Simulated assay, not measured.
Amino acid sequence: MNDHADFSPKEYQQRLSKLRGLMAERGIDAVLVTTEANHRYFTGHVTHRWMHQYTAMFTLLPLEGEPLLIVPPQEACMCEEDSWIKSIRTFPLEHILQGVDAITDAVRELGLEEGRIGTELGGIVALRMPCEDFDQLQQNLPHVDFVDASALCWKLRARKSSAEVERIRAAVAITDAAYQVLFEEVKPGMSERELCRLLAVEHLRRGAEMPGSITLAPYIPDDIRVANSTLRRPIDRVLTAGEMITQDAGGVYRGYWSDYTRMFALGRASAAHQDAYRVVYDCLQAAIEATRPGVPIADLIHAAKATMSASGHADYAAKVTGIGHAMGLEIIEPPFIAFENEVILAEGMVFTIEPGLFTADAFCMLEEDVLVTDRGYEVLSKPASAELPIL
C-alpha cells in the first residue's frame, strides 16, 4: 500500500477478523458489500466513481479464504494502489450484469452455492444494486440464502479505532477554525448564501475534502413564515440585526466527518433568546456528563429531557424522542441517541449530541462532537459558549 492508502493493512485485517467473528456467530458464510462506506471501511479503496449511479463495485468477504474485490476495469489499478486486498476481478463497465456474473462465479468457486450470504438489506442502508440485478443474482444462485448483514457492519463501525478517531479529530478541528472565521466576519447585510458559502470555503481552505451539512435556522423578528423553522438550506435573504441564527456545519477529512451546531445573535439578543439558549446549553451539558462506557445510550436523552423539564419546558421535553447520532465515514450513522435504544455505550464510539428546543420565538439547537473514552468522554469540538454569543 502506498502513502495515500487510508490505513495500514493490519487495521483492515483486524476489521475483517472482527467481522468474521460476528459472521460465525450468525452462521453467515460470506458478506457481499455493495455500498461506498462499507466498501471503503473493509477495503481501503477510494474512488470518485461512486458518484456515478451506473457504476457498481463489490467486495466479497468470505468466512474462510481470501477476500475479493469485483470492480470495473478502470478501478483495478487504483485497487492495487489503495487496497490491502490482493484478489481483484473486473467486469465491463458498460454492462452492470457482468458484475452480477462475476459475483456468481466467485460464490461458486468458494463452494457456497448453498451457503448463507449476508448483504446490505436493511438497517438504514440500501443495497447499491438495481433490483433487477439482485433478482438476477438470486436466480443465478437459487439455493443461496441471502440475509441482512447491515447490523454486523454497523456494529463494527460504531467503535472507532484510534486511527479513525484521529481522522475525526482533524475534521472537527477544521470545523472549529471555520466557525471562528464565521464569528469574526458575520454581520447584518450578508445573505444567508454568503454566510454558508463562507463556512464551506473555510472548510476547503483548511484541508477538508468537502464541506457538508451547512444549513441554518434563522429567527427573524415579526416574520411568522420562518419563525420556528427547522434547519434548512440557505436562500438569498439578507441578514438583519436582532436575528438569532442556529447554524449547522461540518466537513470531511480523509473520509471522516465532523458535524456540530452553533447559535448566535446578530447585534443584539432578546431575553427570551438568551433564556432559550441557556436551556439548550444546560440540556447539552447534562447529556454529555451522562456519557461513559457501560451505560445505556438512552441515559443521555433521559438526562437532557430531565434538565429540560426542570427548566419549565416539560411539555416540550415529553415530545423529544432523540438528541443525536453517531458519525464516522458517514455524517449520520447508528446508533442513535433515542430513549428506546438499548445500545450500551463503549469506548471508541463518537456521537453528535444535539438537544433542541422550539419556543414561541425560535428553533434552538446546540451540538457537540463527543468521543466515548475508557473512563468517560472527550468533547472533540471546541465547546460552545455558556451564554448566547452576540456578534
Rank of each mutant, 00 (worst) to 15 (best):
R268N: 10
V295L: 07
F351W: 06
Q274C: 13
A338I: 07
A314Y: 03
A265L: 04
S270A: 13
M349N: 04
V343W: 13
A271Q: 13
V320D: 03
Q285D: 04
T246V: 11
E333S: 06
L266K: 10
I332Y: 07
G324F: 02
A290W: 01
A314K: 08
E342G: 06
A269P: 06
Q247E: 12
L345A: 09
S270L: 10
I323P: 03
Y281F: 15
M327N: 00
E330N: 12
I331P: 01
R278D: 10
T246I: 11
P335A: 08
A287P: 01
T307G: 04
E340W: 12
Y316G: 06
A287K: 04
A290D: 02
Q285H: 09
L300R: 07
T321A: 14
Y316R: 07
E342F: 05
H313W: 13
T291H: 01
V343P: 00
A286F: 10
M349I: 05
N341M: 11
Q285F: 00
G348R: 04
G250N: 11
I297V: 15
D299W: 12
I297Q: 08
D275F: 04
I344H: 07
R262I: 13
E342H: 14
D282L: 04
A265V: 08
A317R: 10
V295C: 10
W257F: 14
K305D: 01
G322V: 03
Q247D: 03
F264E: 03
K305F: 07
L284D: 01
V279Y: 09
P293E: 15
M349F: 07
E243H: 06
G312P: 09
G250K: 11
M244T: 15
Y277I: 09
D299P: 00
S309C: 09
G251V: 05
I337S: 08
I297N: 09
E340L: 07
R254Y: 08
Y256M: 10
Y256H: 15
I288S: 08
I323T: 08
A271R: 14
E333Y: 01
Q285A: 04
G267S: 11
M327D: 00
G324L: 02
R292L: 05
F336Q: 03
T307C: 13
G267R: 12
M244Q: 13
M308Q: 12
A249W: 02
P335Y: 06
